[in-house]
């Protein structure tokens, strides 16, 4: 389980799960946990668990894990729940990194295996990435004054 000792309460989030003594079930919101991350985390448990996926509501995915050895020890199920939660957090990081660096990877592979790179130049690529970052800048604090039309 994640080391939580150095985290202040404001840096923590709560993840709820259900257990009936034989399995654990998480109902996850896709807005918080991308579907790819949920499926990726569930996949990692295929050796130890039977994995059941359901969609109880729009944008929700329920993951139920039942141990293959039929363990019903509450402590073991709690550990299982914690391990799944940690795997889920790691998968979210992987998803975010892949999303953010997809173009960089494509460029590097295109450059590696084709004589003419798919992208025209590295400068253009980095400019595109800068544009993407600006799109997430709701207050547009990073937009230069000149481009913002300030003073006019």
């Amino acid at each position: 389980m994640s080391d939580t000792t150095t985290q202040s309460p404001s840096e923590m989030e709560e993840l709820v799960y259900d257990t009936d003594g034989r399995r654990v079930a998480f109902t996850l919101d896709e807005e918080l946990y991308p579907r790819e991350a949920i499926l990726g985390a569930a996949y990692l448990f295929l050796d130890r668990c039977f994995v059941f996926l359901e969609r109880p509501a729009d944008q929700k995915v329920q993951v139920r894990l039942k141990t293959k050895d039929g363990a019903s020890d509450p402590d073991a199920l709690e550990v299982l729940a914690g391990e799944f939660a940690n795997a889920l957090l790691d998968q979210v990081v992987r998803f975010r990194v892949a999303e953010s660096t997809g173009q960089l990877r494509e460029y590097a592979f295109a450059r590696a295996f084709f004589t003419t790179p798919a992208q025209s130049s590295i400068d253009q690529l980095l400019a595109e990435l800068d544009d993407e970052e600006l799109e997430e800048d709701d207050l547009e604090v990073a937009v230069p004054w000149e481009q913002d039309g300030g003073g006019q």
Binding site: M1, S2, D3, T4, Q7, E11, M12, E13, E14, L15, V16, Y17, D18, T19, D20, G21, R22, E78, A81, G82, A85, N86, L89, V92, V93, R94, R96, V97, A98, E99, S100, T101, L104, R105, A108, L129, E133
Partner: peptide, 24 residues
Amino acid sequence: SRITTKSLRLPKRSVRAEHLGYFR
């Protein structure tokens, strides 16, 4: 079996992916 609801407290993990190269 009776269903009980439990919760886990997990660290919020901030990712500033725009600072990172691709990695596994």
